[in-house]
Design a protein around this nucleic acid. Sequence first.
DNA 1: GTCTATAGGGCGATAGAC
DNA 2: GTCTATCGCCCTATAGAC
Lengths: 208, 208
Amino acid sequence: MAQPSPGSPRARGSYAKGIAMRQEILDSAIEVFAQRGAGRTSLRAIAEEVGVTHAALIHHFGTLEQLLVEVYSESARRLEREHPVPGGVSPVERMRLSAERNHGVPGMVQLYTSLVATALEVGHPAATAFATERFAQARAALTEQVRDAQASGRIRRDLDAGQVAALVIAASDGLQTQWLLDPGVDQVGALAMLDRLLTDRAAEGDAG
Amino acid sequence: MAQPSPGSPRARGSYAKGIAMRQEILDSAIEVFAQRGAGRTSLRAIAEEVGVTHAALIHHFGTLEQLLVEVYSESARRLEREHPVPGGVSPVERMRLSAERNHGVPGMVQLYTSLVATALEVGHPAATAFATERFAQARAALTEQVRDAQASGRIRRDLDAGQVAALVIAASDGLQTQWLLDPGVDQVGALAMLDRLLTDRAAEGDAG
DNA sequence: GTCTATAGGGCGATAGAC
DNA sequence: GTCTATCGCCCTATAGAC
């Protein structure tokens, strides 16, 4: 599957082999995360799973942190490819579906949370760059959707789209954390409430 | 200050000395966190600051994780004692002020985020218990304040108080993270917007 | 380019002496 | 109650084989 056929880009020499190994490493790393969780995952554990030494991982990815970033990014890419979030839903619902999808992959939410926590520490450029860009992209994409929803009257027009996007992402992430620690927390209900608050004429229609 | 005077409970022998040492360890640990950040803090670094070996810390706190939990709890306790959050403000504003206050202590937000991330991993009972209880207490306290605000008409009565509490905590935590990674994120503005959304007759007063 | 072997320094945790 | 000594593990870096 990862084997390059003749005609694949740059199949000569060991370049293609390196690409294949990278993919194989990421495959195994995702497996290790699913089984052991993000915190207990070490270079040696991943290397053992792949069947190489931990130094080989360093060769391909530089540091453990960069490997972790790529593991998450690859997982997210595959999820989006295999189970794309359907369109035609509200920005809040979109974030909820995305979070629910991530939750189906064992260890993925833990890895994400761990990377974000690491990103807040100084001296962790890989995690910091990952988290910063991930939030920036998420905000940019969601801001556009909020603007569309505002244009078609599904979200109040008096709200700043960028602030709504940041708020929705924050609420989704934060509620997921609370729900993971206490399943009694009504994550879905709270997000639905936020969705309602962002909608026009919510006060008129629901308030006593 | 932490020195037990005659008449203090159980001043005999080395019991009181152990209590004083615990406080001294926590003092130094808070210092180390302020200077080195949460991620780079090790038992040996704290021990060096205190002037003991890392084995002594294990003796008093059991594990690094438990020490970290106590460091955060003690910092939070001192903050609340020395700079209590003023009353008479909205639940959202209350969370914002609390977050702003924590932000003044170097390393505190990083430590908190790190503990929450650790809590999501399996096999970390100290961090998990800390985070679970902290969220539960925060939700319970905020839920009461939301109910009060609803009773006096400052928050829409058609909203579930518990859901509002969970949402406000999530928004506060999540926006703080985004703001730390990108100061361009309007954390204050987004929280003010949420405050407005929760208020009765927000739609009438601002829309259009 | 790819990978193994190995070494260096740091970590949390434990056991036992004082 | 605190220490020294030690264990086993970790990440990172480098030298050299293939």
